[in-house]
């Protein structure tokens, strides 16, 4: 961090970090070309930067390579040009991550921005987005993100995303409701519930990203998926 103890640091186009955090809550992008960002997450910029909404325009080809679901494209903006761009999101902690020919699935509300080397897809799991390819992306979280190696079981609200491990599944734990005492407990409600009966379970090789609190960010719409046999959560009138 550049904010040393010696007093306030003046940031200008030359002292702003390049593709790095300014402080835990703001990220500086050294833009030279294009970046994709969630609408409304840019707080300031230096230089010549144009912001294009996704739609019919000169960037259609780029967008068609990087976006694979047309309906949530409306929530994204392309920043094009040269300069330093600052990203922030309601004072949440912001971190950048590098993917090298990898994949990462993230809760839709947590993803702020990504480089065009990555392509954004809807996850099969509703409410999540998957990034595939090589490049840098920026994500927000409530408290710093902690990486955990599977096997691990995660509280649904603490899950930010996961990389490389293909087995997100539900795990239920009602052991204390079994047996005679458990039956009494279940029928009377005596003793209450632990609030930890349901987790997401991950096994296999990879990384699971946790945020350190159970407060969620608002989801952004990931778009609907086509209604077809075999497509989970498919809805009629998808725009495809």
């Amino acid at each position: 961090m550049s904010a040393a103890m010696g007093g306030p640091v003046v940031l200008d186009p030359y002292t702003l970090p390049s593709d790095d955090n300014v402080n835990p809550y703001a990220f500086s992008v050294d833009l030279n070309g294009e970046w994709f960002l969630q609408r409304g997450k840019m707080v300031a910029y230096y230089g010549r930067i144009d912001f294009h909404g996704l739609g019919h325009g000169p960037l259609d080809r780029l967008i068609s390579v990087n976006f694979h679901s047309p309906l949530h494209a409306a929530d994204w903006v392309v920043a094009q040009g040269q300069g330093k761009m600052l990203l922030a999101d309601r004072a949440f902690d912001i971190n950048s991550y590098d993917l090298a020919d990898g994949n990462l699935t993230i809760r839709s509300g947590n993803l702020l921005a990504f480089q065009p080397g990555l392509s954004l897809k809807q996850s099969i799991i509703p409410g999540f987005l998957t990034l595939i390819g090589t490049g840098k992306f920026v994500a927000a979280s409530n408290g710093a993100v902690v990486f955990v190696e599977p096997p691990v079981r995660v509280d649904p609200q603490a899950l930010v995303g996961w990389a490389d491990c293909p087995s997100p599944c539900h795990h239920y734990d009602h052991a204390y409701l079994r047996g005679v005492l458990g039956g009494v407990r279940m029928l009377t409600g005596l003793g209450g519930v632990s609030g930890e009966e349901h987790q997401f379970e991950f096994v296999g090789a990879g990384q699971v990203l946790l945020q350190s609190s159970e407060r969620l960010m608002d989801d952004i719409d990931t778009g609907v998926v086509p209604r077809q046999p075999g497509v989970p959560a498919g809805q009629p009138h998808s725009g495809l």
Binding site: G192, V193, Q199, E214
Partner: peptide, 9 residues
Amino acid sequence: QRGAMLAYT
């Protein structure tokens, strides 16, 4: 505290 577990192995 109930509900304060984030993850476990």
